[in-house]
Design a protein around this nucleic acid. Structure first.
Lengths: 339, 339
DNA sequence: CTGAAAGCGCTAACAT
DNA sequence: ATGTTAGCGCTTTCAG
């Protein structure tokens, strides 16, 4: 495990009595070098375990083969799925992935952005925090990037996400179609693009007659506050007959609280979840939930970025929003008083 | 989103009528520079959005602030948990994480290692594939690294993992103590260090009288073959009364198959799982499983590596193997004929 | 206190 | 077909 000096082209050149440029060219498969010399060089390089110095190449203008991925938290399956999809695509094209967690903290985000810029990443896939520092934005704009899942208006005009509004309205509509009239919404902060859209989707269905007491906006990352919010809802004088959740963490929190209180789902309360993690099918009567194509969107996102890097040109603004689909299991039913 | 030229120390120097070296020193808080000049420089740097070029610094011998993390698959919660722990530790110390997926393929692994070396990572945390190429090993040895979870004898003599053997024997013992005598083992390949140890732990309890027909070693990543293996077991003339699983993926496969066949757990079959993901508690009667301190181990691992990088010296060989603990839920019970 | 210059490893233009 | 040279952005002598 000693960190010995790295082998350079010069080492190879000296051992072979060649000039560094000849070695460099041989390694670059330059046609002007004789086949014999090239083979000798390649042989020696392999023997010494030569690996080119990317830093030096980059100083010569070579673009790095690193893509930055900025997510709030890889512990969240949502984002680890994305990271997985990304890593797959990237390594197929010879790129590597720099993983950055923002923890949804703007200062952390700024530090990470600085790190990426300093490291000369070729491009960035970013899930922006709710309210990025303007410096982060300025720096990110220096580098090709795409927005993933969330969008911030001052960042790239290209984004890949899910149709948050459509997804939530589909979830809410499912409950309304079953006959629910008091449908609660538990989601993220509306100042996040996603939270805003999801809430809009809920309102699309619930309409003007919605009871503000049935709505809770929960800060990201805290599944405990989701539990508290649900608890308040259930303890209120006029509790809901159904709940839609609008984020993975909130869904987890809600399920925990429902378990802890032994709420009879769907008899006492119908629930529609957000996202479809492995365990959701196992929960209680099976969680009816909105399955989301995170893997697919992440793949599309990285493919686009890779292609964009190849073009090295500008691209037209656009935003792709892929829909989800309702996976009906046992957690939703006709409301009690209707039966 | 245009990728404009990056701001260099030279840009700052020209605009301020200073030399690059003065600027460089000012930015490095060199005491020889007058406070006034330093402030002017810092001011200008902020104004232009200057971010130092890490590549250039590395050419001057600066060590990179990047740690490589090589895992089979971040889609696996096991590893995404680790990635999360790592990213947390690292960013706290100003390091970044380069995420590499090997897909448990040795050629892929080699390509990733080359990428890391080329990118001059400061250190590597590696979960080696079952049978790495010797070139991968040679290259990895050039850089400070630790083995994580799995170990390969020719790599670093330092490793952080879980006590695979102890964990499996605890799981198996739980079943034997309940009175089970036909306990099946479904685990990974024994040529993986982990698979080997886990199987050994099983044997520690089951002893010589173990029935080879009750054992299946399943290649990594394929949860379908875990289902098949379980199916064969259940359809055999003399089926087991209990099953221990010895990998996350296998556990998932087993749970799926049990659901599909509507096996009555724990009446017809007791099950002990491996690892404790969120959903496991929700499954059927609740999965009794071995909870593993992956997060803690990953944290310890990264702390060690960071410290090791600071020392820049050699370290004594050691391997830490943290134990798990049995989380008893509803999937295990006294065997049917005993009741 | 500040400037000039060298050099890290590599590549590309310019010689042989 | 191969060698020489310059320069990428930064730090670090060595000079003023």
């Amino acid at each position: 495990m000693r960190s010995g000096k790295r082998v350079t082209t010069r080492d190879i050149a000296e051992q072979l009595n060649l000039s560094v440029s000849t070695v460099g060219r041989a390694l670059a498969q330059d046609s002007r070098i004789s086949v014999e010399t090239r083979h000798r060089v390649e042989q020696k390089a392999a023997e010494l375990g030569y690996v080119g110095n990317q830093a030096a190449r980059m100083m010569r203008g070579a673009s790095s083969k690193v893509i930055g991925l900025m997510v709030p938290d890889v512990g969240n399956v949502f984002y680890s799925t994305a990271a997985h999809a990304l890593a797959q695509c990237m390594s197929k094209q010879g790129y590597q992935v720099m993983l950055c967690e923002t923890s949804d903290d703007r200062d952390n985000e700024l530090a990470q952005v600085k790190g990426m810029i300093a490291g000369q990443v070729a491009g960035v896939i970013v899930v922006p925090t709710p309210n990025p520092r303007s410096e982060s934005i300025r720096l990110l704009r220096q580098v090709p990037h795409v927005q993933f899942l969330r969008t911030h208006p001052e960042l790239a005009k290209q984004s890949f996400g899910i149709d948050d509004r459509g997804v939530l309205s589909e979830a809410t509509r499912h409950l309304r179609d079953l006959g629910h009239t008091r449908i609660a919404y538990l989601g993220g902060l509306p100042r996040l693009s996603t939270g805003h859209q999801r809430f809009a989707g809920y309102l699309d269905v619930v309409g003007d007659d919605h009871d503000p007491d049935l709505v809770a906006h929960i800060p990201p990352g805290a599944s405990d506050s989701a539990r508290d919010a649900l608890a308040r809802l259930l303890d209120s004088p006029n509790p809901p007959s159904a709940v839609v959740t609008a984020s993975v963490r909130v869904t987890e929190g809600v399920l925990e609280e429902l378990d802890a209180r032994r709420v009879a789902v769907p008899r006492e309360l119908s629930v529609v979840g957000f996202g479809d993690q492995p365990g959701f099918g196992w929960w209680g009567p099976g969680l009816t939930t909105m399955a989301l194509p995170v893997h697919e969107v992440a793949t599309a996102c990285s493919m686009w970025l890779l292609q964009r890097l190849g073009d090295s040109g500008r691209s037209a603004p656009f935003s792709s929003n892929t829909g989800g689909y309702l996976r009906t299991r046992g957690s939703t039913a006709v409301p009690a008083q209707r039966r």
